[in-house]
Simulated scan of single mutants.
Amino acid sequence: MMKWQPRKKLRLTVSSDHFVVTDYKGDRLKQGSVPTVFPPWTGKLQPFKTSCSSLFSSRARLSASAPLDLPAKIGSLTLFFFLEAYFRQGVALQYLGRHADALAAFASGLAQDPKSLQLLVGMVEAAMKSPLRESLEPTYQQLQKMKLDKSPFVVVSVIGQELLTAAHHTASVVVLESALKIGTCSLKLRGSVFSALSSAHWSLGNTEKSTGYMQQDLEVSKTLGDQTGECRAHGNLGSAFFSKGNYREALTNHRHQLVLAMKLKDREVRD
């Protein structure tokens, strides 16, 4: 039997299909020519019609002396892939039947760029194809009548609160915190999100975060002069501090709750 011997020289051949005309000089390849097995891609990216300012204001700390046009070009391309990833993640999760996670993915994308109509529409469609539809649809129809169905903050916060009601606590936290990142000028709307987040975090056992949102809810109620909201917030804080063993703070908050409850009762009697 012939014994195998390793080759001293190994000739590798590459098909001419792996090079383009400009890679040749006469009948020889130019030095440094790089073969490829992939045909040139002729597709065109369709970037979202959106501003990249939110991405750079929150994530990129660029030097003031940097050229103004360069960051814009880089940001637009980065933002396109960033939002596209969120969108495709949301669609994939939706097809897997993980509706709450899909809504969280769409909301996270909108937190990066609230002007993305594709993400907003995708989120609404995903919500309407989920088990949330029965409870969400009447509310969404009201938003349409009030012309608030194109408001990213309102839509995201409403869906977040629906997720909370359906006991999807982890997803509701992601969606509601995304609503806060999107932002709103309305203190009342922001207060409702603080209140919902305090409940969601409490259900997840995140007592510190829950208490923090309760305190923000209380501050909003005080600013708005909303004694009913203030009474509710003090009651929540009292219960939270009591469960943590901080009885002094619990007593203080429950006393405030009692005083406000008496004021509200007197006002109801007068009215």
Rank of each mutant, 00 (worst) to 15 (best):
M1G: 15
Q5W: 01
Q5A: 07
Q5L: 11
P6H: 03
P6Y: 00
K8P: 02
T13S: 05
S15I: 06
D17W: 02
D23V: 04
D27Q: 11
R28Q: 09
K30E: 07
S33L: 11
S33G: 02
V37K: 12
P40I: 12
T42P: 04
K44I: 08
L45G: 08
P47M: 00
F48P: 13
K49H: 12
K49V: 09
S51L: 04
S54M: 12
S54R: 15
F56M: 09
R59V: 04
R59F: 10
S65F: 05
P71R: 08
K73T: 10
G75M: 00
L77S: 09
L79Y: 09
L83W: 03
E84T: 14
E84Q: 14
F87T: 03
Q89T: 14
Q89N: 15
Q89C: 10
G90M: 12
A92Y: 06
L93K: 08
L93D: 10
Y95E: 12
G97V: 03
A100T: 09
D101H: 10
A102G: 10
A102W: 13
A104D: 06
A105Y: 10
A105R: 08
A105C: 03
F106T: 02
F106P: 00
A107N: 05
S108V: 14
S108P: 05
G109H: 01
D113I: 00
Q118D: 13
Q118S: 13
L120W: 07
E125F: 03
M128D: 14
K129V: 11
S130P: 13
R133M: 09
E134R: 14
T139I: 11
Y140W: 13
Y140L: 15
M146F: 01
K147I: 00
S151T: 05
S151D: 15
S151I: 11
G160Y: 02
Q161C: 05
E162S: 13
L163W: 01
L163R: 03
L164Y: 06
L164M: 06
L164E: 11
H168Y: 11
H169G: 00
V173W: 10
V173A: 09
L176C: 05
L176V: 01
E177R: 12
S178Q: 02
L180D: 00
K181I: 06
I182N: 08
C185M: 07
S186H: 09
L187V: 00
K188Y: 04
L189F: 03
L189Y: 11
R190Q: 13
S195N: 10
L197T: 02
S199G: 00
S199Q: 14
A200D: 07
W202A: 15
N206E: 12
N206T: 02
T207C: 07
E208N: 02
K209E: 12
T211A: 12
M214T: 02
Q215N: 05
D217C: 15
T223R: 10
G225L: 13
D226K: 02
Q227R: 05
C231D: 03
C231G: 00
C231A: 08
A233S: 13
H234Q: 10
L237Q: 10
K244I: 04
K244Q: 15
E249A: 05
A250V: 01
L258V: 09
V259T: 07
L260T: 06
K263H: 03
L264V: 14
E268A: 06
E268P: 08
E268F: 14
